[in-house]
Design a protein around this nucleic acid. Structure first.
Length: 433
RNA sequence: GGAGGUGUCGCCUAGCUGGUCCAUGGCGCAGCACUGGAAAUGCUGUGAGCUUCACGCUCACGUGGGUUCGAAUCCCACCACCUCCGCCA
């Protein structure tokens, strides 16, 4: 949610910023609603003053006066009820309108229509060279007996997978490796709940993305914990642990001395993948459920730019430690999504596709979520909305894909990246068949 | 699942026979004074918001309704937590 003051002060900026993200909004209409809200709010406040004054005077009134004062109070009561009713309707209207305004992109973000407008800002290593034709991760995974999507289809349907044997060891190795690194950096490790309440999902602001941005959509597997009760209070599976980490501090005022607050969460992530039919149908690049290590930072409102670069640098260090070629992509306005003000993706080289594919993503949402979730910090005698950032440490499935494909050998075996060997307990994964 | 209890401004707490409560006190925190500096001590401030400042006002006593001229205080529903019993990784 954006600041109504910002909208009043600079309506053209907000309208243009929305347009840059491909969202059309009617700014003057929203300002009209805001004006109406202000007017009603003032009227209500005046009436309340009157009511409070009268109520207080009753106890001091003589018996003679009392009756007329109470009558007067009754009149105010009726009037106040009407105005309050009108006010709450207008407030709701205003809130709804404000929720439909996307977070403006930062100044340094290029205006563009879609992913074709994104810029590669740097690369790490050259694409891996092979003296043979590299296999894709599913072929490798099946012959190594570490990925099974066929049985998963039998049990759970399309876009699910069993990770087995060394894939499981690789997952735990990645978790250990990232956790150790991030804990040294001062992050607090968290395992969050993966089911969250509906009003929390609204506070996060992903519903407004129009479903066109799969990656950040809160999954709508709607779970009813108690089958005997109707889903009056539905819970939703998180799309990433960020969805449970960010609202942890809902309705709290943090102390500026405690900032930045940095968390690293480990949890499964659930994705609808609606509208992705036919895309990445093989293997585990695009599945409904995968595990993920996610970073979330709460920082002072003017510190989010430096924090954004910091989180990006961590993502890069983690992928550099695996020695996997990647490129950093800076998203243009059209590819940012609704709440982000700036976003970088890390794309790892996937030899079988001869393409870079997204493996991590880091965004600043500035105060867009903290405004909705009411997350502030005290700065001297002032309170400000905190800036919130989130980024992937490892999306485990895709990282395993990148490892298998980039580290594969001609004989079908896969070398284990050096930093993971101690955790995995072996240097090489060899085919079973 | 059964029975009982509790929910006040960061933490603890007073108030709960409706009207000087537009909420008490302590701890913590911040500022100032004292000091060479600190500790200790003292004073002041410390729920949220509106107001450019000030003055002032509004809202807030788990959440949402209701009763009333007036609700932290009475009524209803919901939520959360605690204790005991049952069940269970």
């Amino acid at each position: 949610m954006i600041d109504i003051k910002l909208l009043r002060d600079n309506p053209q900026f907000i309208e243009n910023a929305a347009k840059d993200k491909g969202v059309t909004i009617n700014v003057s209409h929203i300002i009209e609603i805001a004006d109406k809200q202000k007017e009603l709010s003032l009227a209500v406040q005046t009436l309340r003053e009157e009511r409070n004054r009268l109520a207080k005077s009753v106890s001091q009134a003589t018996d003679h006066e009392r009756e007329s004062v109470i009558d007067e109070g009754k009149k105010i009561k009726v009037l106040l009820e009407q105005k309050e009713h009108a006010l709450s309707a207008v407030e709701e209207e205003l809130r709804t309108a404000l929720l439909l305004i996307p977070n403006p992109a930062k100044r340094d973000v290029k205006v563009g229509k879609d992913e074709t407008g994104n810029d590669v800002i740097r690369k790490f290593k050259e694409p891996t060279n092979f003296s043979f034709t590299p296999k894709d991760h599913l072929v490798l995974g099946e012959s190594l007996d570490i990925i099974d999507t066929q049985r998963a289809a039998k049990v759970s349907g399309a876009r699910f997978a069993y990770l087995k044997n060394e894939a499981v060891l690789l997952e735990f190795a990645l978790v250990q490796h990232a956790m150790n690194f991030l804990i040294k950096e001062g992050f607090s490790p968290i395992i969050p709940p993966v089911l969250i309440k509906q009003d929390i999902t609204e506070g996060l602001g992903y519903w407004q993305s129009g479903g066109n941005e799969d990656y950040y959509l809160v999954s709508d597997f709607n779970v009813d914990i108690d089958p005997d009760k109707p889903a009056s209070n539905p819970l939703y599976l998180v799309g990433t642990s960020e969805h449970a980490l960010v609202p942890m501090h809902k309705d709290e005022i943090l102390q500026s001395k405690d900032l930045p607050k940095r968390y690293v969460g480990f949890s499964p992530a659930f994705r609808r993948e609606a509208g992705s039919y036919g895309k990445d149908t093989k293997g585990i690049i695009r599945v409904h459920q995968f595990d993920k290590i996610e970073m979330v930072s709460f920082v002072e409102h003017d510190k989010d730019d430096q924090e954004h670069e910091y989180l990006l640098s961590i993502e890069e260090k983690l992928f550099q430690s695996l020695q996997i070629p990647y490129q950093v992509v800076k998203m243009c306005t059209g590819d940012l999504g609704f709440p982000a003000a700036r976003k970088y993706d890390l794309e790892a080289w996937i030899p079988s596709q001869k393409k870079y594919r997204e493996v991590t993503s880091v965004s600043t949402v500035t105060d867009f979520q903290s405004r909705r979730l009411n997350i502030k910090y005290r700065n001297g005698d002032k309170t400000e909305y905190a800036s919130i950032l989130n980024g992937t440490a490892f999306a485990i499935g895709r990282t395993i894909v990148a490892i298998l494909e980039n580290y594969q050998q001609e004989d079908g075996s896969v070398i284990v990246p050096e930093v993971l060997r101690a955790y995995v307990g072996k240097d090489k994964i060899t085919p079973r068949t």
